[in-house]
């Protein structure tokens, strides 16, 4: 039982990370109609910039603004120099352009920081564990990640539902042409949305840095799962990204944790382990296929 609670927490933590990445991607996708493969690069840039500043200054917390700023500025630059020229174009041109960006960013990071993964450190006071229940110690830092993820979710909820910008964003996700026709400065809105998405990706990257490896190509490792979240949740829906992120985090974690031992009840141990983890690896894709077959627009997709 305690093991189950712990695995649920793990799933939750993975889920909020996916949400942070997917939130930006789903907005860019839904409002601007842009498939941004380079979203993972923004995650990587956040991780590198934050880690570098944290190491130079000796303060983990100074890394946060650095990561956010670097990712947001890169996002603005991508939007102004590349993506803006591709709004009117086919999705496929965007795929090719942002694929080119991935190659460019990865190699630029190698030129700047070398090929070796960077050293990262947890901030003092967060490197231990908290006893949540008797017999259930849980890493403090992971609890912080869950908290930050939930805070961002609440913040985005207010931003989208209670502010003028949020209203435009919602309108844009439902009917892009109409918003443009109403004389809204769509260019500014696009830039803001892209910057916000980049910022969130940078935040996710820096938060993940102390528990993962800060290395070239780290963005592509999580890119596919992020796209899966966006599509399951419904393109353009922040709420969908949140629900799908948590769902995916839980499904992935719980399958990996418990499927092998469940299978071991009915077949020999080593075969059960291999098959179990094999199915668990396919798990998120299986989930996506099922969701899309039942609800082709995703869980919270616009019906239009």
């Amino acid at each position: 039982m305690i093991l189950f609670v712990e695995q649920v927490l793990n799933g939750l933590q993975y889920g909020v990370m996916l949400f942070l990445l997917a939130a930006g991607l789903t907005l860019i996708f839904g409002i601007m109609g842009v498939i941004n493969l380079a979203h993972g690069s923004l995650y990587m840039i956040g991780a590198y910039a934050g880690t570098y500043v944290a190491a130079q200054t000796g303060s983990f917390w100074l890394g946060v603004p650095a990561a956010l700023a670097a990712a947001a500025l890169t996002g603005f630059a991508i939007e102004a120099l590349v993506v803006r020229r591709l709004y009117a174009r086919d999705h496929l041109d965007q795929v090719l352009a942002t694929f080119g960006l991935i190659l460019t960013f990865n190699q630029s990071i190698i030129l700047l920081f070398g090929r070796q993964p960077l050293f990262t450190q947890l901030p003092a006071g967060l490197d231990g564990s908290v006893m949540l229940l008797p017999g259930l110690p849980y890493p403090t830092y992971r609890l912080l990640m869950i908290a930050v993820g939930l805070l961002v979710a609440v913040g985005l909820y207010f931003l989208i539902n209670r502010t003028r910008i949020g209203m435009l964003v919602r309108a844009g996700a439902t009917n892009r042409e109409m918003v443009r026709a109403l004389g809204v400065d769509i260019r500014l809105l696009y830039t803001l949305v892209f910057g916000l998405g980049a910022l969130l990706a940078g935040l996710a990257g820096f938060m993940a840095a102390p528990i993962l490896a800060v290395q070239v190509g780290m963005g592509e490792q999580i890119l596919l799962a992020t796209f899966v979240v966006v599509v399951i949740g419904g393109v353009g829906s922040i709420r969908g990204a949140f629900v799908a992120g948590i769902l995916l985090g839980l499904v992935d974690t719980l399958l990996r944790a418990f499927l092998p031992s469940l299978l071991r009840q009915v077949m020999p141990g080593s075969e059960a382990d291999a098959l179990g983890i094999g199915i668990a690896s396919m798990g998120i894709y299986l989930l996506m296929a099922i969701v899309l077959l039942v609800r082709p627009k995703g869980l919270f997709g616009a019906t239009a």
């Binding site: 093991l3 712990e6 793990n10 490792q221 999580i222 990996r256 141990g269 983890i277 690896s281």
Partner: peptide, 21 residues
Amino acid sequence: TEIYTALDQTDFAPEMAQIRA
């Protein structure tokens, strides 16, 4: 006791709990 991880996995929290158990 064998525990297999996924090919591109980077978060090992589920396995940590299994190791402890």
